[in-house]
Amino acid sequence: MKPFEYAAPRTEAEAVGLLAADHVETEVLAGGTDLIGLMKQMVVTPGRLVNVKEIPSMQAISETSDGVVIGAAARLEDMAEHRLLTPFSSIGDAIVGIDSQQWQAQSTLGGELLQRPRCWYFRSGAGLLAANGKRVTEGDGRFHAIFANSGPAKFVNASRLAPALIALGASIRIMSPGKEDAEVQTLPLASLYRTPRDESQRENILSKGQLVTHVLIPHPQSLANATYEVRHGSGPEAPLVAASAALQVQAGLVAKARIVIGQVAPQPWESSEAAESLVGRPIDLVTAEQAGQLAVAAASPLKDNAYKVQLAAVAVKRAILKAAGLPTGGF
C-alpha cells in the first residue's frame, strides 16, 4: 500500500470537491471491502481517499412519491432488514447470497455497485483489459464473460445487486463537480456501466469527481421478483452466474418483465429476448425454460467457460420460477 491522503467529509458537495481535486488521483472509500485489498495489492494506488460513509444524507433509506430512495452509503445489512425494501425480494436474495456477516455489515450499496471486477489478471496487476484481452483468451477464462466479449474486455461485472436493481428499474443520482456548485443528474442504473474499449476507461461511466449518492427504486406494481445465484459453495465469493427477474403479473399473465443476468458480461446483462418471451403468458416450467434458453441464444463463450452458458439458462429459468413462487427444481 502506498501512503495516501484521507478525507472524511460530512456533505455530498464537500465530498465531490475533494474527489475532483486535479493534482491527485482520488478514490471513493465506503465500506472498503474491495478497495483496501486492491490498494494493498497496489493494483489501485490513489493519492487521496475520500470516505463517504460518514455523510448523513447518504446513509438513509426513505420513501418519496416516486419510490424508495437508498443512500449509497447505506449498509447491505440495513437494506436486508428494511421494511421499505420488503417488496423487493430480489434485492434480499442477493444480499443473503453474499453470505458473509462481515461483508453484509461493512459493505455499502454504492460500493457494492461499483466494486471492481474480480478478474484474476486484473487483480494481479495486468490491467483491467489484461493485455487487450489476450491474457484471458490465451490463459484461463473459466470465470470470464460469455456475452459482449468480442472486444478487449473479457471480465465480468462483479456487482451482486446490480442485476436485481436494474430489473426493478432502478435509477441512480450522481453528483458532479460544477463550475460553481455541484451538479446533480439522474440516470438509469444500467447506464452506469460500460464495456471499456481501452485501458483509459473503467467499467463505469463516472468521471473524476463524480459520486453516486443515491439509488431510486420505483414503487412496485404487482411485481413478482427474485434473484437466483448458482453458487459453488457458500461464503461471500461471487456466484458462477446469477439472474434477477422482475415480473408484472396481471390476471395470471405476465404484463411486463425484465430479466438481468450477472457474472456473464462486462456489464450486467439484460435479456430482452427472455423478458419479451414471457409477456402475455403464464409463468410455468415451460415458459421459464424457454426464457432461459432465449437468454443464452446469443452467448459466445470462450474456450474455458462454455459451462456458464448452461448455468445462465438455468439461473434465468430459476429466477423466473422463484419470482412466481414456484419450485425451482434444484438447490
Binding site: R118, S124, G233, S234
Partner: peptide, 21 residues
C-alpha cells in the same frame, strides 16, 4: 495459467474453500 505460467488463484478470495454451510 498455461500461457503465462502464473498461479492465478493465489489469494483467499479466489482459492475456493468450503464454509461450514
Amino acid at each position: 495459467d498455461k500461457a503465462t505460467g502464473a498461479f492465478v488463484n493465489a489469494e483467499l478470495a479466489d482459492y475456493k474453500l468450503p464454509r461450514l454451510g
